[in-house]
Amino acid sequence: MEATASLNERTEPTQSLVARQFDDLEQQRGAAELGMWIFLATEVLFFGGLFLAYTVFRSLYPRDFAAASHHTIVLIGGMNTAILLFSSTLMALAVRAAELRNQTTLIRLLLATAFFGIVFMVLKGIEYYKDWTDHLVPVLNFDWHSPNPGPAQIFFWLYFAMTGLHAIHITVGIFVMLTLALMARTGKFTTGNYTPIEIAGLYWHFVDIVWIFLFPLLYLAGHR
């Protein structure tokens, strides 16, 4: 940090992009990046509460969890994993496009990322509908043919809580991508300050990572 410049001494052309509390673009970008990573750490622990509950109940009721997991739709879960991994790749390329100041590619890639997010949500919706018709929704229509349905209901509660919270994150992500694509049309991110694209990318990758864990834990626990 060799930041001795006072407010009025800024002369570089990028200065208009720098908020008043920062000395230069570099410092601003570093702050945003660090802030995003810390936000992601809080997200890890936010989801972590559910992962803890999952771990505890799976260790208490391994058989019920395996049996319940058997009723999830692995095909959709697996396809959705592939979709998210692919969209994450596109997002990484989008960040690169912004870095290279390639406006057209950036907009296309952002839209593609959002598109795959939407596909994910559609598949998820189909799956939820199937869960509903199979009477797997706790409280609302849960019907489990066992004298002791409690643990299976807990499994499906955690399944809906975890995938639901994840779906909320995907939805937010889709809106972020669409907004950024809209903003990118003004050339906002291709003049040197692509930090918003970068941290949106971090967010999208994080949501992807959460799903990477949800897939084996929720879908594959009972399919042997």
Partner: peptide, 16 residues
């Protein structure tokens, strides 16, 4: 919760 821990060699037939 009879289904929670089934003794080896027995079926899960006991009602709760």
């Amino acid at each position: 919760q009879p289904a929670k821990q089934i003794s080896a060699g027995y079926d899960n037939i006991m009602p709760s």
